Amino acid sequence: MCVEPGDAAAREAAAPRPAEGPAVDPITVPPVDEVAVTTLIDNTFDALLGSRDGVERPPLGIGSVEAPLFEGGRTSAGLRAEHGFSALVTVRRGDTTSTLLFDTGSSPDGMATNVERLGIDVGDLHGVVLSHGHFDHSGGFSGLARLRGRRGLPLTVHPNVWSRRRIAPPGANPVELPTLSAGALRREGFDVIERREPSLLVDGAILITGEVDRVTEFERGMPPPHQAWDGSAWRHDPTVIDDQALVVNVRGRGLVLVTGCGHAGIVNIARHAMRLTGIDRVDALIGGFHLSGAAFEPIIPPTVEALTALAPSLLVPGHCTGWRAQQALAGTLPDAWVQSSSGTTYRLRSAA
């Protein structure tokens, strides 16, 4: 039997709460029988990709829309792709399932459009988590509010998601990035909960890492043009300290990690998740690895080397990973690497 998100017990179970013990001690994350991660928004959509065991692609012809110049007045528009990321994460333990939304994409309507075309009922959501405050992960809240109405929904964020940020390239005019409004979110019915520390959601089945320890020598964060307003001046913001990831423990398989951009460094994130949980096996990594562009391409080789040592069974780099890193990862880990595409569901079941 599924727990209805409107029930008081379900609301209480969905709300984040402090994980017991300090971060240096292992946090018990009970194993689940299955996790399904559906990419609602990514930078690409490829309608011709085929499904395989554990990877479910949307059917060819999805996204029927009005088109008066076609016979019958309709055509298949597929799914939206944009520079952004959003994923639906559903965990199952026995007969009970719980679903969280992780990030919301870039545009106000992109994620919502794909939700409708995929036939997903967002009324079943137990909560929303933001990986960090950049606009390409937080832009879709208005579309979500349109689909749900002003129904209360927990929203877990790091306190720094409200930071003003800009890109200031040398010799060019700075471009200030859109900043999320806490007040506007609350007016739309979102119950905003700020935490720097790890949180356990949906009755302890999902761990949100909170701030990630930076331990590798090569993952050094954003270059100098990425700046944040500190109240008196714009200063280099290398860490994007609000960056956090989602972690699920699948019985007999190990950890499944979902990242937004991975600004903390995908290797740092994986090692942090293992340290937090005391589980030494990372079975899957899905999301943005932020290895695109001149500032990050030099760290592709050590990143690939470290991920090879982890030996995940599923590797789905998306969003800001970049084509050079995709090529390197696909060539080095061909059995694990899978091309990301909007609308794809990655399903990992218990191995025990």
Score class of each variant (00 low, 15 high):
V247K: 12
I27L: 13
A295H: 14
W323V: 14
Q227Y: 06
P224A: 06
T156Y: 12
L315E: 01
L48T: 08
T156N: 10
Q227W: 01
A168Q: 09
G171W: 03
V248K: 02
L291G: 02
M222A: 11
R52L: 04
L185K: 06
H126N: 11
R166T: 11
A270H: 09
P317L: 08
R166K: 12
P68G: 13
T209D: 06
T104Y: 03
T321Y: 04
T332D: 10
A8H: 05
I269T: 13
L147G: 07
S342V: 03
D42E: 08
I286H: 05
G343S: 00
A295L: 11
P317C: 03
T113C: 09
G189A: 10
D213G: 06
V157H: 05
G110Q: 05
R235Q: 08
M1D: 04
G139Y: 06
V316C: 04
L125E: 02
E82S: 05
E20G: 12
D33E: 03
V304R: 13
R148W: 10
S142H: 14
E82L: 01
L60P: 02
G262E: 06
I300S: 14
A87G: 13
L200P: 00
D191M: 00
W162R: 03
S131V: 07
S98Y: 00
I300M: 14
V122E: 02
L88V: 05
I193A: 11
L180S: 03
G287T: 06
D124C: 06
Y346H: 07
A67P: 01
S199L: 08
G210K: 04
D124F: 05
V3C: 15
I167H: 13
R186C: 07
W229G: 10
L60G: 07
F102Y: 15
L155R: 03
N249Y: 06
E176C: 09
G61C: 11
V316A: 04
G183P: 15
L101A: 08
T75C: 15
R275D: 14
H132K: 12
I286A: 12
Q326G: 14
V267Q: 04
V65T: 09
D124M: 00
D25V: 15
Q227D: 10
V32T: 11
D109V: 10
G127Q: 00
G143K: 08
A14N: 04
R17A: 05
G21S: 12
L118Q: 06
G171V: 00
R165A: 05
A352I: 03
S138N: 09
V129E: 05
G252P: 07
D237E: 14
Q339N: 07
P317W: 06
V37K: 13
P178H: 12
G6L: 13
A336V: 04
V282Q: 14
R166S: 12
V3R: 15
G143N: 08
R281F: 10
R196F: 03
